Simulated scan of single mutants.
Amino acid sequence: MRADAQRNRDRIVEVAREIFRAKGFDAVSMDEVAKGAGVGPGTLYRHFPTKESLYDAIIEAWAGKVNAAVDRALALDGPARVRLLTWLSDYTAMLTQHKGAAARITAALGDPGSPFAAKCQTYLAANQRLIDGMDSALRPEVDAMGISRLVGGVAAVADNSELPDDAVASMLAVVADGLLAPVHV
């Protein structure tokens, strides 16, 4: 890619990220992004033929961020509940970073034709890594899809109702307690 084309692409992604974050996916038009980035519609559509492809580019960096968050949670030296809550909190924060993303991504789970399928796979893989890294601390029936749906539901509620952080943390604690295997004394 030519240097000027790469600059245009980077500028489009940067501007679109801010607009999507402020307004949410559904409220953003491609024309608005083109104007904000100072490029013509043709330039925008050459780089991103659909709004979904633009959104995908915006959240592309999530894969690295997601993997780093799982690594951080698994590396903690503490009880399984602390490691699990650390991941669930980070996962919720990532899902709610862009207005409306939590509901859209959670609803797309299991749909290989969704424009968000790659992001869903990233989260599913991260949840599987968590399960694998938690040894037998989780209930045997816990799977990556279940964690994704539970946390996605909490994140969607948090995103749409502007709950305070302590209310979200309380819901995540209930989810964590339900995922952990019972401790027999």
Rank of each mutant, 00 (worst) to 15 (best):
residue 59 I to G: 09
residue 53 S to A: 15
residue 22 A to R: 14
residue 33 V to W: 01
residue 58 I to G: 05
residue 64 G to T: 06
residue 55 Y to Q: 08
residue 28 V to I: 02
residue 28 V to Y: 01
residue 40 G to C: 04
residue 57 A to V: 01
residue 22 A to Y: 10
residue 25 F to D: 03
residue 56 D to H: 14
residue 52 E to T: 10
residue 29 S to Q: 03
residue 20 F to Y: 05
residue 42 G to L: 11
residue 25 F to T: 06
residue 34 A to W: 01
residue 61 A to I: 14
residue 21 R to E: 14
residue 45 Y to Q: 10
residue 61 A to H: 14
residue 65 K to A: 14
residue 49 P to Y: 11
residue 54 L to M: 02
residue 26 D to T: 12
residue 67 N to K: 13
residue 22 A to N: 12
residue 44 L to A: 04
residue 30 M to Y: 04
residue 61 A to G: 15
residue 24 G to I: 07
residue 36 G to H: 06
residue 68 A to L: 12
residue 64 G to E: 05
residue 52 E to V: 08
residue 35 K to W: 13
residue 61 A to Y: 13
residue 40 G to P: 06
residue 43 T to W: 08
residue 19 I to D: 06
residue 18 E to W: 11
residue 55 Y to R: 07
residue 33 V to F: 01
residue 53 S to Q: 15
residue 68 A to H: 12
residue 31 D to A: 15
residue 35 K to C: 12
residue 40 G to S: 06
residue 52 E to F: 09
residue 16 A to I: 03
residue 28 V to D: 03
residue 53 S to Y: 12
residue 49 P to W: 11
residue 22 A to M: 10
residue 66 V to L: 02
residue 41 P to S: 14
residue 46 R to F: 11
residue 37 A to V: 03
residue 22 A to G: 09
residue 16 A to H: 02
residue 39 V to N: 00
residue 42 G to S: 11
residue 67 N to C: 10
residue 36 G to V: 07
residue 26 D to N: 10
residue 21 R to N: 12
residue 31 D to T: 15
residue 39 V to S: 05
residue 61 A to E: 15
residue 35 K to V: 15
residue 25 F to C: 04
residue 59 I to N: 10
residue 32 E to I: 05
residue 33 V to C: 00
residue 16 A to C: 04
residue 48 F to T: 02
residue 38 G to D: 00
residue 20 F to D: 03
residue 41 P to E: 13
residue 15 V to N: 07
residue 45 Y to G: 07
residue 16 A to W: 04
residue 58 I to F: 07
residue 32 E to F: 04
residue 52 E to N: 10
residue 24 G to Y: 06
residue 33 V to Q: 01
residue 45 Y to E: 08
residue 63 A to Q: 15
residue 69 A to H: 05
residue 29 S to L: 01
residue 15 V to M: 08
residue 23 K to Y: 09
residue 30 M to I: 04
residue 63 A to Y: 12
residue 34 A to C: 01
residue 28 V to N: 02
residue 42 G to C: 08
residue 67 N to G: 13
residue 43 T to G: 07
residue 22 A to V: 10
residue 69 A to M: 05
residue 42 G to V: 11
residue 51 K to A: 02
residue 17 R to S: 13
residue 29 S to T: 06
residue 67 N to P: 11
residue 50 T to E: 01
residue 60 E to G: 14
residue 43 T to R: 07
residue 38 G to N: 03
residue 54 L to P: 00
residue 24 G to A: 06
residue 26 D to R: 12
residue 48 F to P: 04
residue 45 Y to I: 10
residue 25 F to S: 02
residue 49 P to S: 13
residue 29 S to I: 01
residue 25 F to I: 06
residue 69 A to E: 05
residue 42 G to Y: 10
residue 52 E to Y: 10
residue 16 A to Q: 04
residue 42 G to P: 09
residue 45 Y to K: 09
residue 29 S to N: 01
residue 29 S to F: 05
